[in-house]
Amino acid sequence: MIGVVKMTQEKKKRSIPLTVLLTLVALGQLVPLVWLFDFSLAKSGDLFGSNMFILPDPPQWGNYAKAWINGKIPQYFVNSIIVNAVSIGLVAVFSVTMAYAFTRMKWKLSKPLLALVTIGIMVPIHATLLPNFLIFTRLKIADTYLGLILPYVAFGLPMGTFIMTGFMEGVPHSVEESAILDGCNTRQLIFRIIFPLVRPAIVTVIIMTYISTWNEFIMAATFVADDSLRTLPYAVYNFAGEYSADYAVQFAVMMLVALPSLLIYAFLSDRITAGVTEGALKG
């Protein structure tokens, strides 16, 4: 007993230099963000002084008010929510139904279609930008929410289906078998039995899709030209062009765009960490 206490004490002592080292490196890694925040509260001219960091006196919260209004943050934020909620929801539902049909149900095209969807993981998004731009423009779905939702779902599905099929292979058949014997039809089977069973995998799929679609920029910049439909990441790009001399306000826009992601991460960091590692190791 005494030995154990001693050991943990020693372990604690030993880990102090380690903690210091890790703290320094973590701070070093986050310096650009700290700097960005620092000068987002300063006057634009302060950047050209010789100080690396300053104590904004008084903090220019007005920069944020300007960023909020001129950067059209509320409008872009609402667009982001709509596009992401629909995309993530559809990816979650489709990956469960598709994975179930691919792994558990018996039909001829099951294997080839699954293979086709899995190939999708390898296809780089950027190779579809130009053809999709041309197709979307022709079909008049460029400049609509659909113009973002469709490609987001399409590129979220391969990974989602992949994670889900992997998970379903580990789910025992017994529950569904008894449900079927009890007279469940397919719809009841999927929505009442399977969805609750694969909930952990659904969380992983939602997190992976969220990380890639919430921050997605290049499709949003390519397929949407109508300012009223643009999503949050575009605000930075837009603002940098329009107010290129007002650095402090630009920095405030960047902080505001990063804020929702940071908040979500702060509240769900365990889930996100778990989801990311699971998704990444399977992919």
């Binding site: 990380i211 979500i264 991460y265 996100i272």
Partner: peptide
């Protein structure tokens, strides 16, 4: 992991 949750933009 913080840099990874913020948009590339």
């Amino acid at each position: 992991f913080v840099p990874c949750v913020i948009s590339t933009v």
